[in-house]
Nucleic acid binder design. Structure first.
Lengths: 220, 220, 220, 220
DNA sequence: AATGAATGAGTATTCATTCAT
DNA sequence: GATGAATGAATACTCATTCAT
């Protein structure tokens, strides 16, 4: 019990903060930021209204708290994603599997909340773009560019390819958050499907291309 | 009913409705649904606050009006997208090009507003899922299923493949709405890049697979 | 009824404003600015809370409204005070009588409210100093300076004499607002007493000065 | 109780009280009673919020503490003011000089705070009226009455004359607190000017009264 | 006695909605 | 149908006060 644990800190102040952020996540996810009230968050957190303001400057600061929390998780996740041993296809499958695993672990609520407010709050959006999006794409572009130059990947524009790849994961997440029942039921099958499409595309390969597919080869 | 024209309705009532929806789109896009006020929408529309309530039951009904308007556009667009003449790759490129074109034509604002509220308003979400999402995926799954059965596409799960495909488009749209500068600058290049990835994947094909990529072939 | 009346304007909007300011005066005077609530002012005014905000930007604007109203009254009063015919003593008695009369007419409440907040609100104070205090003293100093130069008044510093004179009126007003019962009972006798003191001082004049008072004559 | 020293009490408890009252004076003076917070007073005093409540029942009690403190000072000052040796004019000059000196010594802040709240807080006002105002006027009336009966002062109503005299000092104090720059700059000249006016009035005396001023003589 | 985290009552302000004109 | 003044419910935030440590 006395050993400090990163997830449940011994620091009672940090614990209180976490407790409030947990409540905020739940209430925001259910009602959205604006329809959520401080009163309800306080009730869910089991504290008084005023207590929240001992830990967060205002309602918006709760969102920033959620963003920080997400960035922490992502930061820790980055450690694992670093070693691209094996082929590019292998790497991509591993990366996606890991990505979806951390997503599931983090929980969908936090993405639900942040996405909806990122679309609406310019300050939050700017912050997120600098803190999360830009660094992520910087790494991804660099990796993709290297792999393309080395012939491990087809020569496309690394920046756009990175957006397309990230977009596919983000897009299915969004579709799920929007309530697509198929994605809710078969979420665990997605990483493999996405990996397959990203790696080989939707059309059959080999020399046995049907319907004049070879005519497409020298495209772009 | 008399000589109804969809673009410039002779019906003065429909014109007033459109005028209000235009204003709502602009104000919602700038401030988001909650921060937008009826007063400002009325001002922008050039009418009195109360007038809006002669055309819409309440503020939320403005969102439904936007959704309907979007569905109309999509519905008209569907006519063009239906004929899969030529190969699967050709079709996909054509479809994406058209998709992005209508998106650009419709304007990003309406998607911006609807997305953010879809994430937050359960009623709107349910309605959208039934009116827009479900029919779209029904068509897509049916088409993909047929093409896969006929060998024009690789045999994957049609439902998941449809989600992945749609997700990639939706995902890059979302990234753009979230302010990614690269996507803002190079938006016209995206359809081709996405088409290329969806058609052939990221890894090189041919027999000349580098780095033991062939070891990946018998995957899934 | 159709003839416009300055005190009860036909303009319904101005009437509503006045109605709210009346209520604010009463509630502020009773509770002080901070302890007064918008709700109570609205109730006393017979309107809804929100209605107040159709006429005043915020609670503080009610104070500014009171200040403006006072300045209007003072402005109108200035017309009467202008003609210093007769001797200086006569003028002073007339001025004080008029001053106290308008004070009584305006009502003590408005002074009560404004004084207490002037002591506490720097912005209000600055505004009042420029709009009311400075012009008043400018006129007073000029008049006193002239009368002193002409020998109608004893040669003192006009600026300080003006402060002393104004201070005596303001001071007894303050003592009354602070609840001195004597001043409440005998308020009408004050102008004459003050005039007498200001004109001749407290000590007996004539050659018949008792107790070596003449030794005081060449003072200052 | 042991060797209590009014200025630097050995009693640590009294020292703490004084320390808190000092802080309260400063914070009240800067922000006014309502805008001042217990937290800030505690910070300035160098104690915790809760500690204040070991010495004062509530926030209002701090005001009472200030009032008591002021009364102590006034009480001590009264000793000096009591002996009317010399003529009435001499006495008045001495009294005013002393009055202004103690005022300056005590500092304007405490008056600033007390005045503003006296206008607003009925309890404080009642207390001040009984503890401070009434006794002061009792002494003043008695003194003035005697001097008037003895011919040392002109025969006016002692009660009203006392109010007028006190009012002039209080009034210029108020004008200074309200930010009159002239009074801030030339504050030290005031006692003499006020004394001169109170003693001889504004109009010239002697037999050489200009402009028929003698016609005013038999007034009241 | 001292602390300061927790409390929760209290309030200015906003804004969707109504309805008399 | 159009208007816009009036409405009043809803809510973030403050801060005096308490009390367990």
């Amino acid at each position: 019990m006395s050993t400090t644990n990163l997830h449940t800190p011994a620091d009672p102040s940090a614990a209180r903060r976490a407790q409030i952020l947990d409540a905020a996540t739940r209430v925001f996810a259910e009602k959205g930021f604006h329809r959520a009230t401080i009163r309800e968050i306080a009730t869910v957190a089991g504290v008084a209204d005023g207590t929240i303001y001992n830990y967060f400057a205002n309602k918006s600061a709760l969102l920033l708290g959620l963003l920080d929390r997400l960035n922490e998780t992502e930061g820790r996740a980055a450690h694992f994603a670093r070693a691209p041993e094996g082929g590019a296809a292998e790497f991509m499958r591993g990366y996606l599997a890991h990505r979806f695993a951390t997503l599931t672990e983090t929980g969908f609520d936090i993405f639900h909340v942040l996405l909806s407010e990122l679309l609406v709050d310019r300050d939050l959006r700017d912050r997120w773009r600098e803190q999360t999006l830009a660094p992520t794409f910087a790494i991804a572009e660099s990796y993709l560019g290297g792999a393309m130059a080395g012939g491990a990947l087809r020569p496309l524009d690394p920046a756009l390819a990175a957006r397309a790849m990230a977009g596919m994961s983000l897009g299915v997440l969004l579709l799920r958050l929007l309530g697509d029942p198929t994605l809710e039921e078969r979420w665990e099958e997605l990483p493999d499907t996405i990996a397959a499409i990203l790696i080989h595309g939707l059309t059959p390969q080999d020399g046995l291309t049907p319907e004049g597919e070879t005519a497409d080869a020298p495209q772009r």
